[in-house]
Structure formats: C-alpha cells, structure tokens
Amino acid sequence: MNRSMPSGSSVNSARSAVHPREFLMWGFLVSVFMLFAGLTSAFIVRRADGNWLQFELPQAFAISTLLVVISTVTLELARKAARRNEFSALRAWLLATAVLGMAFLASQFYAYLQLTGQGIFLVGNPSGSFLYVISGVHALHIVAAVLAVLVTLYRAYRWEVHSKSLLGLRILAIFWHFLTILWLYLYTFLWWMH
C-alpha cells in the first residue's frame, strides 16, 4: 500500500481508545460467534427431532483441549517478552504457540480417526455429521490463526514486533484466545449433548 491509513492519523480524532483494527477484529469475532451459534443451535433443533445416534466423544478431544489451553499461555508469555523487548524469548514463545496450534490440529485429526474407528463417519446420522462439520469449521479458523502466528513470527525475526509495536500481536492474541474460548464452549457443548 502506497498510502498510509488515514485511520492512524490524529486529525481524524479517533473516538475510542480502541484502535480501529482491533475494533475490526472484535467485530469479526462477533460474526464468527454467530456462525457457531447458528451451527450449535441447528444441532439442538435437529437433536430435539429424535432419530439421533448417541455415541462417545473421541478421547483425543480432551488432549486437544489441553493443547489449546497451553497455547494461550505461551502466547501470553510471548506478549510479555515483546513488552520487555526480550526478542529471543518472544520468538521462542511464538514458535511454541504455532507448534501447539499445529499439534491441536493433529490431535483433532486423530480424533476423527477414533471416530471412524467407532463407525461414525461424516456421511450417516446427522449427529456424527454435525460433530465433523462443527469441529472442522473450528479447525479451519485455527489454521488461519496458526498462519497469523507464523506471519507474526516472521515479523519478529525482522525486529518489527517490540515494546513500541504491539498492535499486531495484541490483535493476534485476541483472535487466538477467542478461538480457545470457542473450543472450550464447543467441547462443553458437545460433551453435554453426548
């Protein structure tokens, strides 16, 4: 972009303490939330109709939950390191976060293997289909978030993330923590429904 964003300019006299980009992220999270609200309420409505196959949730979901919770801690440690300009720690924690995110995806994939082992496939009773679609759409968001972590890691190697340039990292953290909370909600929801 050859033109700087007018939004950063003080002449526009921003009305709130929140940076417009951060605000955009919050708005985006609202719409992601609505997407999952739609899917989970469809789940409830369909389940109430009967003809609903009950089965055990794959145990790998518990491992996934653990991984994603740890990853929020490592991301917070990365932010702490960035605030203190501890660059090697920043890179290490970002890398750890990215690896944990990928491990989460691997664990979700393993959960799918466990499901197919139980005879639950994408095609079949909607109770199984819903599980695949809901966790799959969430995993897609994790993929995007891992890519964002990798971009931030790249920027960290170019000395672009430091105590005076934290906005990108903060917005990333908002997204990442949201996805963690979203997974906790989905896991609790699915556990409750099974």
């Binding site: 972009m1 980009r21 985006f28 995007a144 964002a148 340039s165 906005l167 990108g168």
Partner: peptide, 16 residues
C-alpha cells in the same frame, strides 16, 4: 483475520 493485521506491517510502528 490474517489480513487485518498483516497487510501493513509497519503500521503499529508508524503510529508511535
């Protein structure tokens, strides 16, 4: 989400 904070990497810097 990636676009929202990576299309202009210098932004946070220039702000300050």
């Amino acid at each position: 989400s990636t676009i929202a904070h990576s299309n202009d990497p210098t932004h946070g810097h220039s702000l300050h």
